[in-house]
């Protein structure tokens, strides 16, 4: 059992090391050397690799949202405005959060496991001995790819979510497609778009940088790699939900 003081000290150390890593990443993005090939590879791995899971998440979320809100709206005789609720919910909240959580499960854990096993098998030390800065080679391309691809995936999730809502509205709720679409457009305002695009940028950065940080701090052989994988998913998921609240609060006071 770890004493509370020790726990606080180790938590503060983790935060300090994480902030140091983000500082190094910031430096790595604006100064040479750049590992462009690694960036392209990560863009593909994170972006294309996560497409299926994000599309499935988006479409089913949109469908269930239409079903649930359709039922509630029926009580007020307002079934026709279902599109408005689906679009606003998807763009402002569910699209960014669910996409980020799915990418955390698929990519964040993979990054922590990959970098963690490189640490425990001395491959990271070997990189340093060969004159390569592991932050620039391993972390910067992944963080940049995550920051670029999560917003794009979120936009895709939002789009297919609205399509899923359309299918349910037309087939189950008997709302005309044109009515649904006009409500989708009417339900969106510029502040919603800004919120929907700001969140995934921050989520993408957070989930990948947390995965990299946890991976680089891996100790204790294969058991440590397993622990890091779990820790990265838990830490990134919680961080996404906390950040979601903070960003929403901040943007609401700034944009609305």
């Amino acid at each position: 059992m770890i004493a509370p003081v020790e726990w606080i000290k180790s938590a503060l150390l983790e935060v300090q090391e994480y902030l140091r890593l983000t500082g190094q990443v910031a430096r790595g993005t604006v100064s040479r050397p750049f590992y462009v090939r690694d960036l392209v590879m990560q863009l593909e791995l994170i972006g294309i690799g996560s497409l299926t899971v994000v599309v499935l998440t988006g479409v089913f979320t949109g469908m269930v949202l239409a079903l649930q809100t359709g039922l509630t709206l029926d009580q007020f005789g307002a079934r026709s405005v279902v599109g408005r609720l689906v679009s606003a919910s998807m763009v402002r909240e569910l699209g960014p959060v669910l996409t980020a959580l799915m990418v955390t499960g698929r990519v964040g854990s993979g990054i922590a496991a990959e970098i963690g096993s490189m640490v425990v098998t001395d491959q990271v030390a070997a990189l340093r001995s060969l004159g390569t800065d592991p932050i620039r080679k391993l972390v910067v391309p992944r963080v940049l790819a995550g920051t670029i691809m999560v917003p794009i995936l979120t936009v895709i999730a939002n789009g297919v979510g609205m399509l899923g809502g359309l299918v349910i509205s037309v087939t189950q709720l008997r709302v005309a497609g044109s009515v649904y679409w006009s409500n989708v457009v009417q339900g969106l305002f510029m502040p919603d778009i800004w919120m929907g695009l700001t969140k995934p940028v921050i989520f993408g950065f957070a989930l990948v940088s947390i995965g990299c940080h946890v991976g680089l701090r891996t100790r204790g052989g294969t058991q440590g790699v397993g622990r890091s994988t779990t820790n990265s998913v838990v830490a990134a998921s919680v961080a996404i939900l906390v950040l979601d609240f903070l960003i929403t609060k901040l943007l609401m006071s700034l944009l609305y």
């Binding site: 096993s117 490189m118 098998t121 001395d122 491959q123 030390a125 070997a126 340093r128 001995s129 060969l130 004159g131």
Partner: peptide
Amino acid sequence: VRAHLGMVFQEGALFD
């Protein structure tokens, strides 16, 4: 300095 050093790690530490 490392440019003038070579290291053979335990188990090789080859990049998988």
